[in-house]
Every structure is written in C-alpha cells, then in structure tokens.
Design a protein around this nucleic acid. Structure first.
Length: 637
RNA sequence: GCCGGAGUAGCUCAGCUGGUAGAGCAGCCGCCUUGUAAGCGGCAGGCCGUGGGUUCGAGUCCCGCCUCCGGCUCCA
C-alpha cells in the first residue's frame, strides 16, 4: 500500500501498516517523536493501520502549538490523572476524562470528599508517573469481555459506557491503569513536560442533575514549561479585561449585596448605557418601530394566559402591597404587556406589520449560583420588540431584522455566532407552518451571509428561533440577541385583526431582542474593548490638564468650548504633577489628553491621543478630528 | 439548586499553629508650583459579611444564613 506525505511524495508500506510504521519508514527520530497521525484530515492513533492511499501527516513533540497534538497530549494526561487518583484514593470510581479547550478534566466518584488541597499531592503523583515512565498500550476486545473486566474492577460508570459503546471496544493501558477509551493516545509520557491541575468542581454524571454528582478535576498540560507559562500569562491578561474588574477600575458600575444581580450604574457607566439606548431608539425609529411603555406589575391572570405562570413561575418575583391581597407579578418579559396593548383596539390588516419596541426593566429571579457580573443579572433591560405580522409578512420582516442585527453589531466591530433552533418534538402548529417559519429564518441568514449552526429540536414549542451568541473573556458563551417566531401567544390572548376578506385572523408575533440584554451587551462590550472604548462611546472623551495654576482660566475655557460642541471633556486641575495626571488619564483610558501651558494656544494645542502618541494641532483641527471620530457611532447621520 | 473556594479600610491585599488589626493606592491637610505614565511630609479611615457556639480570650476554631469567585445544572 501507499500513503501520501505532506510534500506530496508517496511512501510505499506493507499492507496494514500503522502510522507508527510510516514514521519508522521515514526515520527513527521521527518515530520516536511521533505523537499522532493525521490521516485525510482526521486524527488517528499511531498504532492503528492506515488506509491505502491516505494523505498522512505525522505530528511530533515539536508541533507544540498544533491543536490536535495538544489534544492527544492532554487526553493522555487525563489518563495519568486517573491513575494517580486511583493510587491515592483507593475505591474511587472513574467516569470520563476528555480533553477540552485549553486542557482536560476527569470525573470521579470519591469514597470521601476531597478538597483543593488534595490536588497538590495528585499533581505530584502525576509528575512521578511521568518521571517513572509510562507507555500506552492499545487493545481491542468484545463488549462481553469489556463488561466483565469493568464489573470485576467495580467500575459501574465504565460498565455503563461499555454497554452503550458502538463498534469495537478499545482499551488503553498505562502503568497498571486501564481505561475504556477510543483514543488516540501518546506512545509514552515523556513529551508531557508541564502539567497543572487547575480546579475542582461538582459535575453531574452525563450532565443530568437527576444523576449522582461526581467530582471533576480540571487540569492542563503542554509540551513545554514555557508554553504553560505563556498560557497562564494569557489567562492573567484575560482577567485584566474582565468587565467586573474594569467596571470598578473605570468607575462604570458596581454590584451590591443590597440588591444582588442588579447593577448600580455610575455616571460614567451611564454614558455607555445611554449610547446603547440612543442607538436602539434611533435605529428603531428609522426602521419603522413604534416605541411603547407597558406596566411593570400585572395581575396573575395575565401570566396564566401567557403561560408564564405555569412555565416560568420559579423565575418570577411576586409582590403584595398589603397583607391578604392577591399578589402582583413583576414582569420577566415584555410580551404579555404588548399582547394586551395590541388587543386594546380593533386592528386591521392595514395596520400590519405593527412593531412595538420597549426597553423597560424586567426582573427574573435567577437560580442561586448563576449570577455573573453584568452577564447574568436579575435586573434585565432588553432592546425588546414584538412585531405583529400576517404569515405573508414573516419573510420580509425576518429579513429586515437580520439586516438590523448586522448593522448593530457592526457598530462595535463584533460578530455574533448565530444558531437556528428548529422544531422540537412537542410543538404546536402544523408541519406546513413550521416548514415556512424555519425556511424564513434560514433564508434570511443566508441572504445576509451570516454564518450559523442549526440546533435541531431546540426551538420553543411555539416556534423556531435564531439566537445570537458571544464569548466572554473567560471563554464562556452567552446568548445575546434572539428572534423568535410565535404562532401561539396571540391565540392565547385572543388577538385578531380584520383581513381584506372581512374576517378575523390571528396575527403571528415575532419576539425579538437584537442586542439582547443591555446589561449583558455592555458587559461583553467592556471586555471586547478592554475598557478602551472608541471615542464615540468613551465616558470621558478628552481631559484637559493645566500645567500650572496660571493656566486654569484657559483650560476652563477650552473645556467649555468643546463641551458646547457636544463633547464629553473634563479638566484635571488638581495640585499634582503633569506626569501623575497623565498617568491617571492613561489608566482611565481617556482617548485624548490635552496638556495646556505657556506654550499652548488655539493655534497649537498639545494633543496626546491614546495609542497614537503626541502631536500638535490647532483648535480647529482638533475639533474636526473629534467630529470625525464621533461620527463612527452613526455613519448615516 | 449542587461541588469546591472566599468575604479584613473606598480599591488591591497581608494577618503562621487563637493573645487588643496592618501595607500600598485612593481620601483629607500642609509643603512643592508642577511640561507628557506615580514629587515630599502628616492625618484620618475597620460591628474583620451576618447570627449563634467553643474558649479566660475568636479576624483566626465549629454550625446556620447572606453574598461573591471557579465549575456543574438551569437559562421563554
């Protein structure tokens, strides 16, 4: 048989030759350093036979940055972890231990609880294993033999996995530890030069909270200590961009025990907030939305009608003004209010599409342990809207919304990931309706060139949806905007419009929040910019520094003139050195610093621009520059 | 809700095995009169999250609760 090497040359091998055989045929050094073979683009254990004609690439310990090479290294390290844990904690039951982004984990059921302080000893044990030397042997066996083996070892999770495994069952053994595993794995443990156990957490067996909670140990591994150090340094840098840290540092907002999950917005944070609100309001108006405002409190009947009382009660707040009265519910969503508003008057098909927009406050009582800075709050403000349409109008309306999405996210230079969720098993409406609805959503995504993934069966019972996701600085994914088709709620509220046929019809409603929650969007934005907001967003756009006391009059006047032009400019005339005041302006990430002393005049201002160094500009040139930068917030203006 | 960790001055953090609470920055008051990333000195600032317990004595040990952090689960 033949295989094709990366340089397109062909290598002749005996039939049934493995990746390792191929490496040996090329050279002993390569065989020694080989960790993995990539055959026709997918990773394959070195020990497995290659297919005739396959294009192969041998990955070695020198491919330290290759994702697949790291993946196999970490997977093998996970097995060393399990071996170490079994030695140190006899009687432990092992579950699964895959590589993940940036590392690996292994889930265990410990006979007695462990804490983080136990990790050090386990990490030591792993290092000892590596120093002692470990090689991985692969074997294949029948399901019966595998079951018998894990039953004999008292490993119920492995028994369960073996029972469900498809195809041949393979085992990997290193030292005296054998694991049910598809592989691939390293040949031996020598290439594992840096290991670090990074955390301990509870995790439910198979991710289902009705199951036993196991103990998950997280870790990471690299081909060199330098790579591990670089990784830790990257994490540290990411932490510096964390919106919770920047929120305090830049005086944008704070969170308090007095109202968990509800941000206190400081004046500077409020500038960002209002910029988003302005953007929302301006674009809604341009695109035919009508702004409305509906109550915060509703009787229980409203939510019984909408279905929230039945399905969402545990996330809702209820209030009662006086003992003995029926409680009222604080709204967790705007839709019921908008339904009532639609139903308050007779509607004609000529009124549709009718687009109600609202960004009032919502309250959702999130489950304990899930709050997270601005990204998961109880006090939620969405750029919400409900669009009432006829079936014929769905396509055009969805299309316009996707266009709107692009416009909004482009303002900040970010690209959300789109997810199309299609019909679930339990659903309302006809298959024909679902075909049309899903088709409308997918077509709009395609037409606007948005990349998306499909989540089959993940739609709501009342309609399919498009969700937009973004990733935070810790690598977690958050849902931002959402566009949901709903055939159901208008029916529940008995909403109708008069058609051209002089008969009553039910409208379809499209729920949509494009930025999603403003709190969450701002949190993501703070991290995206690392606090260095573009000029049009920056809470303080420029700071004027008088060199000495005698310049205060001039700097005050300069600040006033720029302020009158609509710019956010302040003056730092504290009795501190210029160097110190510049340092603080830099730490606050103020885009422009204007130092003003004896040498400055309207013809020559000393301008220090964030990221661009110093220059000398006339007042008029500076003003022109400011106007140009401010226009980035609204290019159509 | 679950697993693990934490809560000390406005902020960042120190306080070992129990013995009367500390630093830097910020603040305030002086001095300096300031030219592109920290000038100098002084002062003030703490129900050590909260309720209980152990102890002669608790920031420190034990229990409950609240909140936060890292995960899991959840997320119309």
């Amino acid at each position: 048989m033949k295989v094709v090497l990366p340089d397109s040359s062909e290598l002749e091998l005996p039939d049934g030759a493995s990746g390792l055989d191929a490496a040996r045929a090329i050279g002993p050094k390569l065989a020694e350093q080989a960790v993995l073979v990539r055959a026709n683009g997918s990773v394959r254990d070195l020990r497995l036979p290659l297919e005739d004609g396959a294009e192969i690439q041998i990955l070695t310990t020198r491919d330290t940055g290759d994702e697949d090479a790291l993946w196999v290294l970490r997977h093998s390290t996970a097995h060393l972890l399990a071996e170490a844990v079994m030695r140190l904690h006899p009687g432990v039951k092992i579950a699964i231990g895959p590589p993940i982004a940036d590392g690996f984990y292994y889930d265990f059921e410990f006979p007695a609880p462990i804490t983080e302080s136990d990790l050090e000893a386990i990490e030591e044990e792993i290092r000892r294993e590596i120093a002692e030397g470990r090689t991985w042997e692969r074997e294949e066996l029948s399901r019966e033999d595998a079951l018998a083996r894990f039953e004999a070892e008292g490993q119920p999770y492995k028994v369960e996995l073996a029972r469900e495994a498809e195809g041949e069952i393979s085992l990997y053994t290193q030292g005296d530890f054998t694991d049910l595993c598809r592989g691939p794995h390293l040949q031996d443990a020598k290439p594992i030069k840096a290991v670090k156990l990074t955390g301990l957490a509870g995790a439910y067996w198979r991710g289902d909270e009705r199951n036993t909670q196991l103990t998950r140990i997280y870790g990471t591994a690299f081909y060199s200590q330098a790579d591990l150090d670089a990784h830790l340094a990257r994490l540290e840098e990411a932490r510096a961009r964390d919106h919770r840290r920047l929120g305090t540092q830049l005086d944008l907002f704070h969170l308090s025990d007095h109202s968990p999950g509800s941000p206190f917005w400081h004046p500077k944070g409020m500038v960002l907030w209002n910029a988003l609100e302005d953007l929302r309001r301006r674009e809604n108006r341009r695109r035919g939305y009508l702004e409305v405002k509906t109550p915060l409190l509703y009787d229980l009947q409203t939510y019984k009608t909408s279905g929230h009382y039945e399905n969402y009660e545990e996330n809702m707040f209820f209030v009662r003004a006086h003992e003995g009265e029926e409680p009222m519910a604080l709204k967790p969503m705007n839709c019921p209010g908008h339904m009532l508003l639609f139903g308050s008057q007779l509607r004609s098909y000529r009124d549709l599409p009718l687009r109600y927009a609202e960004s009032s406050t919502l309250h959702r009582d999130e489950r304990g342990g899930t709050l997270h800075g601005l990204l998961r709050v109880k006090h939620i403000t969405q750029d919400d809207a409900h669009v009432f349409v006829t079936e014929d109008q769905i396509q055009g309306e969805i299309d316009a919304m996707i266009d709107f999405v692009r416009y909004l996210y482009d303002r900040f230079g970010v690209t959300p990931r789109a997810e199309l969720s299609t019909r679930p098993e339990k659903r309302l409406g006809t298959d024909e309706q679902w075909d049309r609805a899903e088709g409308a959503l997918e077509e709009a995504l395609k037409r606007h060139g948005m990349e998306y993934v499909i989540s089959p069966g993940e739609g709501t019972f009342y309609g399919p949806k498009i969700d937009l996701h973004m990733t935070d600085v810790l690598g977690r994914s958050w849902q931002m905007g959402t566009i949901q088709l709903d055939y159901q709620m208008p029916v529940q509220f008995g909403l109708t419009y008069m058609g051209p046929d002089n008969r009553e019809h039910s409208p379809v409603v499209i729920h949509r929040a494009l930025l999603g929650s403003l709190e969450r969007f701002l949190g993501i934005l703070v991290e995206h910019y690392g606090g260095e907001f573009p000029f049009w967003l920056a809470p303080v756009q420029a700071r004027v520094l008088p060199v000495g006391e005698s310049h205060r009059e001039a700097t005050g006047a300069l600040q006033q003139r720029l302020f009158a032009e609509g710019f956010r400019v302040d003056v730092d005339e504290r009795d501190e050195t210029v160097g110190k005041r510049i340092r603080e302006a830099e730490l606050e990430k103020v885009p422009f610093v204007l130092v003003y002393g004896d040498r400055e005049s309207d013809d020559a201002l000393a301008v220090r621009e964030r990221g661009a160094g110093q220059s000398t500009l006339s007042y008029d040139a500076l003003l022109a520059r400011f106007r140009e930068l401010a226009a980035e917030g609204d290019p159509e203006a």
